[in-house]
Deep mutational scan, measured.
Amino acid sequence: ETFPLDVLVNTAAEDLPRGVDPSRKENFLSDEDFKAVFGMTRSAFANLPLWKQQNLKKEKGLF
């Protein structure tokens, strides 16, 4: 299941849709939104070091 970017960005855990893991908001973006937000594919993002993934998520309001 995916959700629009505005539902996930800068949203407190208690305000997220049911079933969304607040530590993994990026997994609930569509592939198109994911690429638009991070400028890379999911596989490229997954290959980044964890610290870099976290920094990007913070920068984009998805942490």
Rank of each mutant, 00 (worst) to 15 (best):
K57F: 06
D15A: 10
F3I: 07
G39P: 00
F34H: 00
L48A: 01
F45T: 00
D33F: 02
L62S: 03
K57C: 09
G61S: 02
D6F: 07
A36G: 08
P22V: 07
P22R: 06
K58R: 13
S43G: 12
S23H: 15
D21N: 08
R42G: 01
L5T: 05
F34V: 01
L56N: 01
N47S: 14
E14H: 11
N47E: 15
N47M: 14
R42F: 04
V37I: 12
Q53I: 02
S23T: 14
L56H: 02
D15S: 10
L16E: 04
D15V: 08
R24D: 04
E1Y: 12
P4A: 08
E59N: 06
V37L: 13
K57S: 02
N10S: 08
G39L: 07
F3R: 04
T2L: 08
L50V: 12
A44F: 08
T2F: 15
G61K: 03
L29I: 08
A12E: 10
E1A: 14
K58N: 07
A12H: 10
P17M: 05
T41Y: 02
F3N: 05
V7G: 05
G19Q: 09
R24G: 07
P4L: 05
F28E: 07
N10E: 07
Q53R: 08
D6S: 13
F45D: 00
W51I: 10
P49Q: 02
P49E: 07
A13D: 15
N55W: 12
G61W: 03
M40K: 01
G39C: 09
E14K: 15
T41A: 09
L29Y: 02
N10I: 07
G19L: 08
E32K: 09
F3S: 03
A36R: 12
E14C: 11
N27A: 15
T41D: 13
V20E: 04
S30D: 07
F38M: 08
T11L: 10
D6T: 09
A13W: 11
F63H: 15
Q54F: 11
K25V: 15
D31F: 03
E1R: 10
L62R: 03
N10G: 11
T11E: 07
N55Q: 14
E1N: 12
D21Y: 03
T11S: 13
A13V: 14
K25M: 15
F3W: 14
P22T: 06
F63L: 15
K60A: 13
P49F: 01
E32I: 11
Q54M: 13
K52T: 12
F3C: 08
P17V: 04
E1D: 12
A44L: 08
L50K: 10
K58Y: 10
A13H: 12
D15N: 12
T41I: 07
T41S: 13
P22G: 06
L62D: 06
E59I: 09
R42L: 04
V7M: 14
G61P: 02
K35S: 12
R18A: 15
L16Q: 03
T41K: 05
G39F: 03
L48E: 02
Q54T: 13
R18L: 15
Q54E: 13
A46P: 00
G19H: 10
V20G: 04
L50Q: 12
S30C: 06
R18H: 14
V9M: 10
V20R: 04
N27Q: 15
E14F: 01
F45S: 00
S43K: 12
G61T: 01
P49G: 02
E26W: 01
E14R: 11
E14N: 11
L8M: 06
V20I: 10
L50N: 09
L62C: 11
K58C: 14
T41N: 10
S23F: 13
L5V: 09
L50G: 09
S23D: 14
F3H: 08
N27V: 12
R24A: 10
F38R: 00
L48M: 10
K35H: 15
V37A: 08
L56R: 01
V37R: 01
F38Q: 00
A12V: 09
P22M: 05
L29C: 05
G19M: 15
S43D: 14
L5Y: 15
R18W: 08
F45R: 00
N47L: 13
E26M: 04
D6C: 12
A44I: 10
P49N: 01
P4T: 08
K35N: 14
D15K: 12
N27S: 09
V7C: 13
F38C: 01
D31C: 07
S30A: 07
K35L: 15
G19T: 09
E32T: 12
A12S: 13
T11F: 08
L56Q: 01
K57L: 11
D33W: 06
L5G: 04
N27C: 14
P4Y: 04
M40A: 00
L56P: 00
L5E: 02
K35F: 15
P17K: 05
N27Y: 10
E1W: 07
P4C: 07
L48C: 02
Q54S: 09
A44H: 10
N47K: 15
P4G: 06
P4M: 03
L16F: 07
E26C: 06
L62W: 10
T11D: 06
L29V: 03
S43R: 11
N27W: 11
F34C: 01
D6G: 09
R24T: 08
N55P: 00
F38D: 00
P17S: 04
T41E: 13
R42Q: 06
V9E: 04
S43I: 13
E26T: 03
L62H: 05
N47A: 14
P17C: 08
K25Q: 06
P22Y: 02
R24K: 12
D31M: 04
K60C: 08
K25D: 05
L50Y: 13
K35T: 12
P49L: 01
A13R: 10
E32R: 08
K60L: 11
D31L: 04
A13Y: 12
N10P: 05
E14P: 10
P4I: 04
L48T: 01
P49C: 04
K35D: 11
D31N: 07
D21W: 04
L29D: 02
P22S: 09
D31A: 07
D33P: 00
W51Y: 10
R18M: 13
A46D: 11
Q53N: 00
E59V: 08
E59T: 08
V7T: 10
K57W: 07
E26L: 05
W51Q: 08
N55K: 14
V20C: 08
F45H: 00
E14G: 11
S30H: 03
F34P: 00
L8R: 03
N10Q: 10
N10L: 08
K60S: 06
K35M: 15
E14I: 11
L62Q: 05
K52V: 14
K60Y: 08
D15Y: 07
Q53D: 00
V37W: 02
D21S: 06
K58S: 08
S30V: 02
A44V: 11
R42D: 01
G19Y: 08
F34M: 01
G61V: 01
V20N: 05
L16G: 05
L8V: 04
L48F: 03
L48R: 00
F45K: 00
D31K: 04
F38P: 00
L29P: 01
M40R: 01
F38H: 00
L50P: 12
D15R: 11
F63A: 15
L56M: 11
S43Y: 12
N47G: 10
E26R: 02
W51V: 10
R18K: 15
A36E: 13
L50H: 13
N55C: 15
D15H: 11
E1I: 15
A13L: 14
D6R: 08
L48G: 00
W51N: 09
V7Y: 15
M40F: 03
E26V: 05
K35G: 07
E1M: 15
E14V: 11
L8S: 05
D6H: 15
A12K: 14
F63V: 14
K60G: 02
Q53W: 00
D33V: 08
V20H: 05
E14M: 05
K25I: 15
S30N: 10
K58A: 11
E59Y: 05
G61F: 03
M40H: 01
F34L: 01
E1Q: 15
F63C: 15
P22I: 08
K57R: 09
R24P: 03
L56F: 03
N10A: 09
G19A: 10
F38K: 00
L56E: 02
G39E: 09
Q54L: 13
K25N: 03
S43Q: 15
Q53M: 02
N47F: 08
V37F: 06
L5M: 11
E32A: 13
L29F: 03
P49A: 03
R24V: 09
L29M: 07
L62K: 02
E59G: 04
K25Y: 06
T11N: 08
L8W: 02
D33I: 06
T2W: 12
F34E: 00
V20K: 04
F63I: 14
D33H: 04
M40N: 00
L48N: 00
F3A: 04
N47P: 00
G39H: 10
F28H: 13
T2E: 06
K35W: 15
G39Q: 09
